[in-house]
C-alpha cells in the first residue's frame, strides 16, 4: 500500500481543487449537467486515481489494472476531470463535454472515453456490473480490485439490493463500493423523497463489511480503502458522508444544483471561491 504522507495529502488537496475548477468550467461551457453530485465525490475519485488505484493511463486496458466504475453516471464531470488530470486524455477535451461528436457524453460511455470502464447513466446498474468484473477476477485468479461509486438516491433502485445480495453471496472481497452519501437527489433530500435509511444497518444485514467516513477527508478515505483490502470473505462498502455541491458556497446542500449548470456569471463566482 502506498504511504500517505502529509505532503501527499497536500498534493491530493491541490488536485481536488483543480478538478473542482474543471467541473465548474466544463458544466458552464456545456450549459447543462450535474454539478452537485460531481463536487461531492471529488475527494473520493482523487484518492482512488492519485493514490489507491493500480492503473496506467497510457494503457487504459492493461489487464491487471484495478477497475473503477461510476454507477451514479450523472457525476460524469468529476470522472472526466479526474481522468484528464491523470493523463487519459487532454484537458482541452474537457471543454467538449456534452457537445455533438464529443468523446465526453452526458453520461459515461466506455466506447468513447479512454479510462471509462463501463457505460452508465441509468441508475442502479453499476454494482451488478462490478459484481461481474469481480467474479471474472476471481475466476481468472487476478489480483485486481473493483471499485464502484454509488449514489445515495440511487440506493432506492431495487437492483442495487439484488446486486448487494449477490456480492455477499459470492464473497466478493475484491469488491469495494463507495457510497457518496450527500443526502440529496433531484427532487429534494433523500429522506423526504424516499428514505433509504438506515444505510449501515441495511448493508450489514446484506452481509457487507461497512465503514463510515467523512467523504472529504483524504486520510479517512484512504484508510478505509486500505482496510477494505484486508477483509476476507465479504465485500466492503465505504459510506462516505459528503456535502452536495462541496466547495461552491451557493451550491452546497442545495438540491436545485443536482442537475443544473452554472451560468457564466455563476461559474465566475464559483471559480473565484475555488481558486
Amino acid at each position: 500500500m502506498p504511504v500517505l504522507s502529509d505532503d501527499k495529502i497536500e498534493t491530493l488537496k491541490a488536485k481536488a481543487k483543480t478538478i473542482r475548477q474543471h467541473i465548474i468550467k466544463m458544466l458552464a461551457l456545456a450549459g447543462s449537467g450535474h454539478p452537485g453530485g460531481s463536487l461531492s465525490s471529488v475527494e473520493i475519485l482523487v484518492s482512488l486515481y492519485f493514490h489507491k488505484l493500480s492503473h496506467n493511463p497510457a494503457n487504459p486496458k492493461w489487464e491487471d489494472r484495478d477497475r473503477f466504475l461510476m454507477s451514479k453516471g450523472h457525476a460524469a464531470p468529476v470522472w472526466y476531470a479526474t481522468l484528464s488530470e491523470a493523463g487519459y486524455f487532454t484537458q482541452e477535451t474537457l471543454w467538449t463535454l456534452r457537445k455533438l461528436g464529443s468523446p465526453l457524453q452526458g453520461h459515461p460511455d466506455m466506447q468513447k472515453t479512454p479510462g471509462v470502464e463501463m457505460s452508465s447513466g441509468s441508475l442502479g446498474q453499476g454494482l451488478s456490473v462490478a459484481n461481474g468484473i469481480a467474479l471474472s477476477g476471481k475466476l481468472d485468479k487476478k489480483n485486481y480490485r473493483v471499485y464502484v461509486l454509488l449514489g445515495d438516491g440511487e440506493s432506492q433502485e431495487g437492483q442495487v439490493w439484488e446486486a448487494a445480495m449477490a456480492s455477499a453471496h459470492y464473497k466478493l472481497n475484491n469488491l469495494c463500493a463507495i457510497l457518496d452519501y450527500n443526502g440529496f437527489q433531484i427532487d429534494g433530500p433523500i429522506e423526504k423523497v424516499m428514505s433509504p435509511l438506515p444505510l449501515s444497518e441495511k448493508w450489514i444485514a446484506f452481509g457487507w463489511n461497512v465503514i463510515n467516513i467523512d467523504g472529504h477527508n483524504f486520510k479517512e478515505i484512504i484508510e478505509a480503502l486500505d482496510k477494505a483490502e484486508d477483509v476476507k470473505n465479504k465485500p466492503t462498502i465505504i459510506i462516505a458522508r459528503t456535502v452536495k455541491g462541496k466547495g461552491v458556497s451557493f451550491m452546497e446542500n442545495q438540491y436545485e444544483w443536482h442537475g443544473k449548470a452554472p451560468t457564466p456569471q455563476q461559474a465566475e463566482i464559483a471559480l473565484k471561491e475555488l481558486s
Binding site: 466506455m110 470502464e117 463501463m118 446498474q125 451488478s128 461481474g132 469481480a134 467474479l135 477476477g137 446486486a163
Partner: peptide
C-alpha cells in the same frame, strides 16, 4: 461449476452481472 453463476430470481441483476463478465473478456 466454477463458470456457472446462479443469480437467483433477479433477472436485472443477472443481465448486468453478465455485462460485467463480458466486459472482462468472458462470453456470458
Amino acid at each position: 461449476p466454477q463458470r456457472f453463476f446462479n443469480m437467483g430470481i433477479a433477472e436485472a441483476n443477472m443481465m448486468n452481472t453478465a455485462a460485467g463478465l463480458a466486459v472482462s473478456g468472458k462470453i456470458a
